[in-house]
């Protein structure tokens, strides 16, 4: 592992999460879509502000992780803050089926249709 000094910032992850490493409650899937419900305010933590700006249009958790350059688990913590504050909403993936269950044929038809249009 080579340190990539040029790319680094002095912020350690625990200073971004305030020392939290996990969040209680239902976890957000990688493809849960996040939508902002309000605009950032002055003095807001920059990551929160940036999420609010990015999520003016729906954005998946994994996309936020890539945008912010932060691990998905840290992004989940930040998103929980925003969800608790009521400034974002989450659109969870609908087919929360168990590993064994299969998506419905109706859903798959839509997927096929979409793919064929590519």
């Amino acid at each position: 592992m080579k340190p990539r000094l040029d790319d680094e910032d002095p912020d350690r992850l625990y200073t971004i999460t305030g020392g939290r490493s996990r969040v209680g409650g239902g976890s957000l899937d990688l493809v849960t879509l996040i939508v902002s419900e309000s605009e950032p305010t002055a003095g807001m933590q920059s990551e929160h502000a940036r999420i609010l700006r990015t999520c003016r249009r729906p954005t998946a958790v994994v996309e936020l992780s890539a945008d912010l350059g932060l691990p998905v688990s840290v992004v989940r913590i930040l998103l929980c803050d925003l969800l608790d504050a009521g400034v974002v909403t989450a659109r969870h993936p609908r087919p929360t089926h168990s590993p064994d269950a299969l998506p419905s044929p109706e859903l798959l038809k839509r997927v096929l249709l979409g793919l064929r249009k590519l």
């Binding site: 249009r57 729906p58 954005t59 659109r91 993936p93 997927v111």
Partner: peptide, 12 residues
Amino acid sequence: APLRAGARHGLK
């Protein structure tokens, strides 16, 4: 490009 505003379901 941002997603459409009505985007609702993420699939993997």
